[in-house]
Design a protein around this nucleic acid. Structure first.
Lengths: 248, 248
DNA sequence: GGACCGCGAATTGCATGCACTCTGTAGGCA
DNA sequence: TGCCTACAGAGTGCATGCAATTCGCGGTCC
């Protein structure tokens, strides 16, 4: 490993946390991907202790699943969880808009405009970056409310939504996001809080619908549903693991 | 230590986490109290590793402050943070009310009534329990939305509010909370979502005001403000630690 | 020929030890 | 006498080793 004297780098756990987080949001790590402590630790020159800490934080935010003795994987939210996340997100972002309504400053508008410009530029060129910037636009808005709590929550649900899009939406579905971001920004700059909120609502609804409604009956859920319909015909070994179903 | 064979207890970290959490909410651990890994680990028969994990989770939720090489203490939110927390809480609980409005069931109403009865009974007799139950009433409401995300967030801000009350309010200020809980419950049972939301708003505003407005200019903040007014008279050693101010 | 069982590799769960940082205190120097 | 420094105690930061669990795989029994 990188042989650094103790205390060289003051927060490696946070570093790894951020790295994994970005990788997940940018969909470089697909939902369901395994995250072995050893491998990650080796890659970042840290011991498992520290990696475990980072994974713990990610798990608390719902970005990774942490099953006992089975290791960590990138989370694969169920359809209900996905719906729920989008729903809460809508509520939170409404709060953001309400707070920002009258009191957003010139400087802040400029920062946001610069961000949207960056989004525009990344679109098409750099798909992963584009996805991350779209997420970060919302986080930036939350930060401007000056509320750390709100910022944290928006940041969490927005990240989770990135994950969900990777699972349930087809690629390139974030195409029109930039223009919607522009509209929100315009409404805010004009001081029209109500309109900003309305546009935001439409924006999030749009993203959610494009993602969720399209491909609801897919993969795992289908299997489970189908099987549950046959459950009473089988009516055996309800809770035992499959491989030992008939044991003893 | 309790000499249990490895793997006996499947989640001691979570256990310690809950224990500390309850202790903080019930104000058995006052804001600012030190939380040494050694002592806690010894008390629960676990090693520092596991205690550290629990403290990490608490820190992520804002119940504990974790300063590098200086150990963990029960958080002491600033006045601004307190205000912010209450503000976000109001927004979140409005979401809860909106969701619960039309679709709360008989069974759920009964559960809530039982809870309020327990609150009533604890009032006066068992102050710490009473405080915790009041917090848990709100968490229970959030759970009934069926949204894990919303539940988690409400649970966090509500806990933090418990902490804040310990810091900024005078004792016994939660006296009328029970009756307000009853009113919310009545409105919900009647299916009147709008009224429930209004009562909830009043309730939270009431709690916040009783706590925050009373003792705004107190203790630490005052000291800082006063000193900052004298800062330019001193105008020396701005950023260096005091004890080495004149070194080398 | 097919299903069950037990073994081993891989991987996590946790305790412990050593290194490092911080703080309080006593001693030395001007 | 007053200030700085050096030291020591306490307590955290992290790596590592060992125990435990899980899962895949080949052998064995029916």
């Amino acid at each position: 490993m990188a042989k650094r004297i103790r205390g060289d780098n003051p927060d490696r756990a946070g570093l790894i946390y951020r790295a994994l987080r970005h990788a997940i949001i940018e969909q470089a790590l697909a939902p369901g991907a395994k995250l072995p402590e050893d491998a990650i630790g080796e890659r970042f020159g840290a011991s498992r202790t520290i990696v475990r800490h980072a994974l713990g934080r990610l798990s608390a935010e719902g970005l990774v699943e942490l099953r006992r003795n089975r290791g960590a994987t990138v989370a694969t939210p169920s359809w209900e969880e996905a719906r729920d996340t989008f729903d809460v997100r809508l509520g939170l972002e409404r709060l953001v808009m309400a707070r920002l309504a009258g009191q957003i400053g010139r400087e802040q508008i400029k920062t946001l405009e610069a961000h949207v410009a960056a989004e525009e530029q990344a679109r098409g060129n750099n798909e992963p970056l584009s996805i991350r910037l779209a997420t970060e636009f919302h986080i930036l808005l939350a930060e401007m409310t000056g509320s750390p709590v709100l910022t944290r929550y928006v940041s969490e649900v927005a990240s989770r939504c990135g994950l969900i899009l990777a699972l349930y939406s087809r690629p390139h579905s974030s195409e029109c996001a930039v223009s919607e971001h522009r509209m929100i920004l315009a409404a805010l700059a004009a001081g029209d809080g109500a309109k900003a909120a309305a546009v935001m609502e439409e924006h999030l609804d749009g993203v959610a619908n494009r993602a969720l409604i399209v491909s609801r009956p897919s993969k795992e859920r289908d299997i489970k549903d189908i099987l549950s319909a046959y459950a009473d015909e089988i009516a055996v070994a309800e809770k035992t693991p499959a491989r030992r179903a008939r044991k003893s």
